[in-house]
Design a protein around this nucleic acid. Structure first.
Lengths: 340, 340
DNA sequence: ACTGGCACTCTGTCAGGTCGAGTGCCAAGG
DNA sequence: CCTTGGCACTCGACCTGACAGAGTGCCAGT
């Protein structure tokens, strides 16, 4: 159906359109790429490609632009991942060097990704569910307010403010509960923690049951209410390069960027750290973003991904570079988080 | 120089322009407001107002639009702050109810502010410098990595990851240092903490001096590297209502929104919780944002402000509503943080 | 001091015309 | 059967001129 030349033409169309952002015609194509055929031949091939749904023309007598299906074919079969330049590799190390804690790593990563791809970058915070609890703390902040904290082995800290029963007039009860909980939870994964917490109510003396249940509720909230459900975003100004129609294309993106839930849905679920997922236009699960593409990858210190990162940009995007950048950054961050 | 009628005309121009976003002419003015004079009279007055620099016309034979100076006069002398509707007040309480911790309060506040003003909202995290240290924690995360944490009485948690000397082969040293530091710092303000930490090196046995100095450095970093230097942003999609020119007006705003430092500079320094600051167009300290106005206020539980919040929008903004909203939200958040 | 009237200026828009890029198709050639 | 040069056709981009409308400034009259 599609011989080599047609594929080469499709590749050329994608490549030209991505760089010029203008429909590309048959003549320009034979001039800029050495296809060794005439423009008429290219036209015939383009007619076939259009019939098959890989390209389309905005109006009669304009050049062709790739469809989502065309980009998909390009990404799957026609593109070779562009290796990053030495300068880019150096930029990555320089940018990440000296990160203070996990939050800082995430913030730097998202900025880095936005900068090298010149798109909007999104980085999910590492999900606690693949981590291990290192420390549990319960503090009294005021007469009836307390703080419950949970620290993971990677240094992520999650906390909740709770109302403490005012009758616990000194902190012995608090320390008792804290001690028992620490003993119970340190070393546990969040999933184990949920199970152990469910059985905890029976293990405390009735005198502290009110206090204990409040703290346990907060801890359950922390470990079960997926703490990786947060994302960092950078590179929003890059949207101004998006195109002309603002209300129709950019606005939905801006709205999606304010909805953490949508963003997580968008990044998708990455189970492995080695794949880069590309969602093109209408393949996108979130309807208002069907004019945009998402390039995402899992990241983490081992094969199992801790969380996801990626970029969002126009379907007309330089996929080979984007994929290479996302992959490189994901790998680097994974290693960085492992080594500290 | 400017009699009552001229002021009334200026007020009418501002009001009409803000709602219609189009230059307003003399005839429309006498029709929509009962000025009891003819359009010719209005024209004469407008000529004076233009001469004085309060209004301008985009081109000959177009209506007038207010200048920055015109808006300034309007804000200072011609507008009365619009009280919030009952529905808005209810929305504020509903939105804030059930906030989990300080971070959550900030996130909700910034969303709330963006929603009721329909502008871009910015909320600075409460600065630690007006708070008191409640708890200090030092944890070992791995063979050579540790976590240093600091909790304030409002429940703000700041942490740093540090490299620990590997020779501390069990955690007695760590606990010793932690204990001494907790004793030293709990109850201190950040300023006091800096002083006390400076003198701490002398108080520890030499065997733990390496460990101690690492931890102290991290704590100094936490308490001195102003943790209130962070802001939350929401309502970015509202920028699409900004106007037509994108490259020139919206892009600089998007860029500013990615720079925490610029944003803090923009909000300015609010020392009191009772004033609302309005910076109009060129009054703005950050040059690329001279087409925008900033309405900001300090907030906090007492008269002294903890931090600042505000909105950024086009100079053509509904100042009375914006000022009222910013003030109301600032007060509400202040009370909320105090009561918990 | 205000008002009605008038000439003037400028923008936005619409119709008409031209240009050029690009296509589809066809007949001829390898 | 594939490829190619040629040709007619289509349609958007751009320019032009004309026109209506909004708005102004100014002036003479009340």
């Amino acid at each position: 159906m599609l011989d080599d030349r047609k594929l080469a033409i499709l590749r050329a169309i994608v490549s030209d359109y991505v760089s010029s952002q203008e429909p590309v015609g048959s003549r320009a194509l034979v001039e800029r790429h050495n296809l060794n055929v005439s423009s008429a031949t290219v036209r015939n091939d383009m007619a076939v490609l259009e019939e098959e749904g890989y390209i389309t023309q905005p109006h009669t007598s304009a050049g062709r632009i790739p469809t989502d299906k065309g980009y998909r074919l390009f990404v799957d079969r026609l593109s070779t991942v562009k290796p990053l330049s030495a300068a880019e590799r150096r930029a990555i190390s320089a940018f990440m060097a000296g990160a203070l804690d996990v939050d800082d790593v995430v913030r730097r990563t998202v900025q880095l990704l936005a900068q090298i791809t010149r798109q909007v970058a999104i980085v999910q915070y590492p999900v606690l569910s693949s981590l291990v609890i290192r420390h549990v703390e319960v503090l009294r902040l005021g007469p009836d307010r307390g703080l419950v904290m949970c620290v993971s082995t990677t240094g992520t800290v999650e906390q909740r403010i709770v109302s403490l029963p005012p009758d616990a007039d000194d902190d012995d009860d608090l320390n008792l509960v804290r001690g028992k909980l620490a003993e119970l939870l340190v070393g546990a994964s969040p999933r184990e923690a949920i199970d152990r917490l469910a059985a905890f109510a029976d293990q405390v003396p009735p005198s502290v049951s009110a206090l204990s249940s409040t703290v346990v509720a907060a801890l359950l909230d922390i470990v079960s209410d997926d703490p990786g459900a947060r994302v960092a975003v950078a590179g929003v100004p890059n949207l101004t390069r998006f195109g002309d129609q603002f209300e129709t294309t950019v606005r939905p993106v801006l709205e999606a960027l304010e909805e953490q839930v949508v963003l997580l849905h968008l990044l998708g679920e990455a189970t492995s750290t080695s794949d880069v997922t590309v969602r093109i236009g209408q393949e996108n699960p979130y309807e208002p973003l069907q004019e945009t593409s998402v390039v995402a990858s899992g990241y983490g210190a081992d094969e199992r991904a801790w969380a996801t990162l990626g970029i969002v940009g126009p379907t007309r995007m330089d996929y080979p570079s984007a994929i290479a950048s996302v992959r490189a950054v994901a790998r680097y961050v994974g290693r960085f988080l492992a080594e500290g």
